[in-house]
Structures are given as C-alpha cells and as structure tokens.
C-alpha cells in the first residue's frame, strides 16, 4: 500500500500546514508581550530574552479590569434577555395558529436580514435622544434586538418538534398555561437554550460596531473598545498592545479548548 501511505502523509501535511498557520499568530501574540520595544524593533522574529511582565503591567493599567467587568455585565444581561424573550415568543408562535401570528413570524425573520450598518443613524438618534448614550443598560437593548430574531427562529423550530403529549399531560394534571411552560417545556429545553446562549454570548462579547457608536465614555467601554484603546494609547508600543490582547484573548481560548464540544455544536448549529 505505498501509494496509500504517500496520500495519507500528504493529507496530514496539508492539515498540519493550516494548523501551524493558525497557531503561529497566537504564539507570536503571547511572545510579543514578553519582549521589549527595542528588541522587537531590531529583531522582529526573535524570542523574548527574559520573562518580564512590564508590558503586561503597562497594559493592565489602562483599565482592562474595568473593560472586562463591563463586558461581563453586558454579555450576561443581553444573553439573559435574548433567551428569555425569544423563548416565550417562539413558544407562542409554535403553538398558536392565529393568522396574525404568521405575519409576525415573517416580520421577525425579515428583521434578521437587516444589517446593523444600515440603521446606524437612527439607532444613534434614538439612543442619544433618550439620553442613554454611554449607558451599559442602553447597549443591552439593541444587542437583544439583534439577537432575538435568530434565536426566535431557532427556538421556533425546536418547539415545533417538542412532544405536545407532555404538555397535554401536564394540563390534565392541573397545570395552568404558565406552569406548563415553566415546569415542563423550559426544563426540557436546556440543550437548545445552552446552544443559543453560547452563540449569542460569543457575538455580544466580541461586538464592536454598536459599542463604538454608543459607548464613548472610557469607564463604560467594553473589551473590543478597550483593546482598540490600547492601540490609541501605545501607538508603537507593540509589546504592551500584544500583552493587553493576550490577557483578553488567552482566557477565552482556554475556555474554548475546555468546552470546545459545546462551542462547536452551538456555532455549527447554524448550518441546520
């Protein structure tokens, strides 16, 4: 089987080249944080000469802790709101055959196609008109609005396949409509909820455009803006910029490797 061996080695080589191409910038990012400005300038491809954390301290002092806190608050609030609002809406849409609901469903699907880029001007006017610029509360609302259509469609498909017999049995046992949802449907929808939550959390955590538009006060900025802030503050101090990016990115990567099964399942669910 020598021909088979050669093909197999060639295929391994091909995926290895891509894996190296993906890994190299990440390794380079981490190493750059440990180097000095002068050193990186004279020898771009060199290795760190010592394990100094100076650049990490410089980056941390730009307020990264605050950016992380803001991002955690915004992500938890947005994802919670998206999942709660979408699940009840999808349940009604999947269980009722009122003709008006069909149009509401079409409207929600249509809003899924509207890019945030094409409503920037009125969005800015609505938020600033309501006096809500630079409020973490304000950014949660548009994030929820942009997450709801996709999540509702996802849950709608899930509830259509949910066994109605279980709900009817609960009704016979004396549950009212709300109890059927809170005691029977929701507890059995955990995996769908988790998938949707992970997907939306990755989106909100990394969202940049709306944050750029609506959060200008440094105390209220989320992580993507905080990282851009590093570039503005340090301009050519690449070790400090990369140290900052490393501190933000590495925990996410570790979390991903530990829970990759769930991430991959959630994000690849888009294809269904």
């Amino acid at each position: 089987m020598p021909r088979f061996r050669i093909i197999s080695i060639a295929l391994h080589l091909l995926v290895s080249v891509w894996a190296l191409f993906v890994l190299a910038p990440v390794v380079w990012m981490v190493l750059a944080g440990f180097r000095t400005r002068a050193d990186i300038f004279t020898q771009p491809l060199g290795l760190p000469k010592s394990l100094g954390f100076d650049a990490f301290v410089r980056a941390w002092n730009t307020g990264i802790a605050g950016f992380i806190l803001n991002s955690v608050l915004v992500t938890v609030a947005s994802v919670g709101l998206i999942v709660a609002v979408s699940s009840v809406a999808a349940y009604v849409l999947a269980r009722s055959d009122h003709p008006a609901l069909k149009w509401i469903y079409v409207l929600i699907v249509a809003s899924f196609a509207v890019p945030a880029q094409s409503v920037l001007v009125p969005l800015y006017q609505i938020i600033s008109g309501a006096g809500l610029l630079n409020s973490l509360f304000a950014i949660v609302l548009p994030y929820a609005a942009y997450g709801i259509p996709f999540t509702t469609v996802l849950f709608y498909a899930f509830f259509l396949e949910f066994p109605r017999e279980l709900e009817e049995a609960a009704r016979l046992d004396g549950c009212n409509r709300l109890q059927v949802i809170t005691r029977v449907v929701l507890p059995l929808s955990g995996s769908a909820m988790a998938s949707a939550a992970i997907f939306q959390a990755v989106f909100v955590w990394n969202e940049f455009l709306l944050a750029l538009l609506l959060l200008t006060d440094k105390r209220i900025k989320t992580l993507p803006l905080g990282m851009l802030n590093l570039r503005g503050q340090f301009s050519a101090d690449w070790p400090a910029i990369m140290a900052g990016v490393t501190m933000v990115t590495l925990p996410m990567l570790i979390l991903f490797v530990l829970a990759q099964r769930y991430f991959v399942r959630s994000l690849a669910g888009l294809g269904k």
Partner: peptide, 29 residues
C-alpha cells in the same frame, strides 16, 4: 479541528490588532 476553529472565538478587534502587528513594516513578522 480544535486548532483550526480557535480563531472563531477571538474577538475581531483582537484579530485585527494581531495581524496589524504581523503586517507592520517595522516590527512585523
């Protein structure tokens, strides 16, 4: 699969900054 999928969870601003440095004429790889 894990390695290839990894960049998907990195924020696009972080990706842009990493590559900005790689493409930099003075310090870039």
């Amino acid at each position: 699969r894990t390695i290839t999928f990894m960049p998907v969870v990195i924020s696009s601003v972080a990706v842009s900054l990493i590559w900005l440095m790689i493409y930099d004429p003075n310090v870039g790889a």
